[in-house]
Design a protein around this nucleic acid. Sequence first.
RNA 1: GGCCCAUUCGUCUAGUGGUUAGGACGCCAGGUUUUCAUCCUGGAAACAGGGGUUCAAUUCCCCUAUGGGCUACCA
Length: 511
Amino acid sequence: MTAFRARFAPSPTGALHIGGVRTALYNYLLARQLGGTFILRIEDTDQTRYVPEAEGYIIEALRWCGIEPDEGPGIGGEYGPYRQSERKAMYGRYAEQLVASGNAYYAFDTSEALSAKRAAYETEKKTFRYDSSVRDDLDNSLAMDKAELHARLASGEAYTIRLKVPAHEIVKVQDLVRGEVQFNSDELDDKIMLKADGMPTYHLANVVDDRLMKISHVIRGEEWLPSTAHHVLLYRAFDWEDEMPQFAHLPLILKPNGKGKLSKRDGAKFGFPVFPLAWRGKTPEDAFDGFREFGFLPEAVNNFLAFLGWNPGTEQEIFSLEELISVFDSTKIQKAGARFDIDKAKWFNQQYIMATDNATLAASIRPLIKAKGHFPTDTFLEAFCGLMKERVTLIPDFWEKGYYFFEDIKKYEAKPVRKKWKPEMRPHFDNLVALLASIDTFDAETIETKTKAFIENNELRMGDILQIFRLAVSGTLKGPSIFDMAALLGKDEVLRRFEVAYARFDEMKSA
RNA sequence: GGCCCAUUCGUCUAGUGGUUAGGACGCCAGGUUUUCAUCCUGGAAACAGGGGUUCAAUUCCCCUAUGGGCUACCA
């Protein structure tokens, strides 16, 4: 059995889509589980769509998710270089080899000529395909003698090299998730292997590199299934078919409504991230926040992504990356596309936040708090996280829902104040404040005991006192235990907040 | 249009030739809580349709429908 070697081969044309992250994750999971190798290869063969910042983005995004390649650009490895643009010269030789063995040919048709052809076919309601049925009538080396070919080649005229797909053959593709898939070669076009600019197309570069990098498993999105027939033909043409990698085509991640692949536009449209990290393109339209900026934890994103198109067959849903590595099973990969469900993603995030220890959470929210101009002690911040973590789903919620632990209350909820604040009760609250002021050990337990005793002794109602206590301290009815909040804020601050609140309450009551 | 892939609650999914078709998210109701959240309990909610095969099909086969992908000198 040959060593397991899988690769993730994105094209650096922009931000890495979340579906790409899932593909990388599945490759990574299997590589780790089987003691294999996970390779990152940059497929930058399209010079027109190349975006320089994309490669760095891809690497950073994978790193954020905890998916570290064993080989790749900037990492090294025995089979480099790992950028296809740096392997350019080699592909030409392989393409020529294909021509020499009779499996490919030179084609001089310009893209303009071909589009004209397509347009002409279109008017007759037919579809033009550069294939075995028409290639003899087109401008290629199959239709000319040696002398003309040499002359044209020597003249420096631009040409492409096309794969000569054999006619009337059934091409069988073995797929790990779908079983055997068959294609009639008469339906397959003579795909370009080498473009006029000397660069290979995806098909050639992919097959050659997978071979040279000793890739054992090609795990990629379902959009590649149709062209896999060409890839099989290519392996055959090179006489590599016996050692062809295993294919596994993953179901696509669909829009929430199921109508099409999830796209970057959906993020803007529905207000959720579709990229791991923020991306700032050249135009305002090409700028997006990622899962990280929305406040997702990478572990939660991995867990969510792993379950989009796969599940372990048990009822456990929360899995760390390590657990996923041990339990992942390619035979349980789903065949049908999976819709993106942001609610489920948020639920995973909440689960992870609740399970994270306070110190770790404190460290991760400190930058956020700092950005707001506050520099609490670790002890304070950790206690804060402990009080809030069951009440947040995304990291920024810590601030949104708990800002009042760090600064003055911005807004008192009007409705409950008007409903609960009775100015005639003021003497009772003055007594309560005096009582609080007298507490020496201002901890939650003591505050609770004393306050509850106070309520009982004065024959007051819990709701009447505690709700106002809460409103005075936090401005809202929602939040952690009032005793915990009071203890964390400290006696002086609590007393001060009561003073501030009285004035505001009276004001709101009369308004 | 052609080719390919797919189809279990709204969503992610488990599952079997004979099951009360299971779980999770979301939703609803109740409980716990001073509140919110967490947590607990309960509820509504699915085998796309039609033919076969079979004693029996959600499960196997075919067709249809629907959805998706591909159909570039893009990946």
